[in-house]
């Protein structure tokens, strides 16, 4: 079973790399988001530095969601989802592994690119470290929540927008604690630990809960 899961993990990584819907495109989208904001609010470096963590988090949120609608849809279209559903391996574990592969291909590059883009937003080194850490801890939660939405909309022809509508309200807590932790890193008064711990808790909670919800959705929609 472990070998099957490892094979699935590698397959998803390979697909993400070859089709290009994965990492590189997400990072490019992230860069475009960061570029667009100064055009909207003006090139004031003080202001940009202050709202930098928020911009990076919103960019990461949208970049994660945009890539996720194909998570199960592609497998549904070529029929491999039916094979996965009928396999001996529990569907919950399959969902978990697919999420892990997706996060490695998109979430991880986003978090690693964040400090580079943060420099463009005139953020302090401490704030850069804070935003990177919070993105590393928080983007898995976004992937898990998004996987749930992706499972619900897997069989729909144009599920992308619907998925965003379903998932974004649920992602509010992750955004709140992610931005709080990132902002607290450069703030002398606020504590970084509390929001960061809660963010980790949210990630763990979604890692436990979302695979069950997503697997239930895939089972019931496939019938």
């Amino acid at each position: 079973m472990t070998r099957a899961l490892a094979a699935l993990f590698l397959r998803d990584l390979r697909l993400a790399r070859r089709i290009g819907g994965g990492g590189s495109m997400g990072v490019v989208f992230f860069l475009i988001m960061v570029t667009i904001v100064p055009f909207a609010i003006g090139p004031d470096l003080n202001l940009l530095g202050r709202i930098g963590p928020a911009i990076l988090w919103i960019g990461a949120l949208l970049a994660t969601l945009l890539g996720l609608d194909r998570l199960f849809q592609a497998d549904h279209e070529d029929g491999s989802l039916d094979l996965l559903r009928m396999a001996d391996t529990p569907l919950e574990l399959i969902v978990l592994v697919k999420c892990a592969a997706h996060w490695t291909a998109t979430g991880l590059p986003l978090a690693l690119a964040a400090p580079v883009f943060g420099v463009m937003l005139a953020m302090e080194p401490q704030a850069l470290a804070g935003v990177t850490l919070s993105l590393l801890a928080g983007t898995p939660a976004l992937t898990f929540l998004g996987a749930m939405g992706a499972a619900l909309t897997a069989t729909l022809r144009r599920g992308g927008l619907l998925m965003a509508i379903l998932v974004l309200p649920m992602a509010v807590p992750v955004l709140i604690f992610g931005v709080s932790a990132a902002a607290a890193a450069s703030d002398a008064v606020a504590s970084f630990g509390t929001p960061f711990m809660i963010l980790c808790a949210l990630t763990l909670l979604s890692a436990v809960g979302a695979p069950f919800a997503a697997a239930a959705a895939l089972r019931s929609l496939g019938e």
Binding site: M170, P173, I198, G209, A213, A217, S220
Partner: peptide, 26 residues
Amino acid sequence: KAARAAAILTLVGVVNIPIIKFSVDW
């Protein structure tokens, strides 16, 4: 199918709404 999908989302919301409430308060 629509009923089952909506049911799953509704129950996820039952878990998530208190979390949203808590985080918004915070």
